[in-house]
């Protein structure tokens, strides 16, 4: 349990580092657990903690990085119709999508 949490923090850190370099070049660089983890955290309210759904929402934890990236980009472009994800995916840059895909594929 503890180990799992430490691992989670580590992955979060890596995701955030990716993001920080991708999109936050102007922000102070020293944020240690930054937007990568928090980006993914905001998805948990629907997709469940770490992307493991508790009900009718799709589980996205453990799906391949490629699958998640393709889905999110297709939601963003409108190529894939959905009830809500088009409206959400349009709020994220391609770099953020890449970081999110990496994060959830490793859960």
């Amino acid at each position: 349990m503890r180990r799992a949490k430490f691992k989670a923090a580590a992955v979060a850190f890596i995701a955030s580092a990716t993001l920080a370099s991708a999109t936050l070049a102007s922000a102070p660089a020293q944020a240690e657990i930054a937007s990568g983890a928090v980006l993914a955290n905001t998805c948990f309210s629907c997709h469940g903690t770490d992307g493991k759904s508790a009900g009718d929402m799709p589980t996205i934890a453990g799906k391949s990085e490629d699958f998640i990236t393709r889905k999110l980009k297709a939601f963003k472009s409108g190529e894939l119709e959905a009830t809500i994800m088009n409206r959400i995916a349009k709020g994220f840059t391609d770099e953020e999508i890449a970081a999110l895909a990496k994060f959830f594929s490793r859960r």
Partner: peptide, 19 residues
């Protein structure tokens, strides 16, 4: 579409509560 959103409303509640 409305039925799906009703199911997702419940899905949201269950995920956020467990989170």
């Amino acid at each position: 579409f409305r039925r799906k959103e009703a199911d997702y409303t419940r899905g949201w509640y269950e995920s956020i509560s467990r989170d």
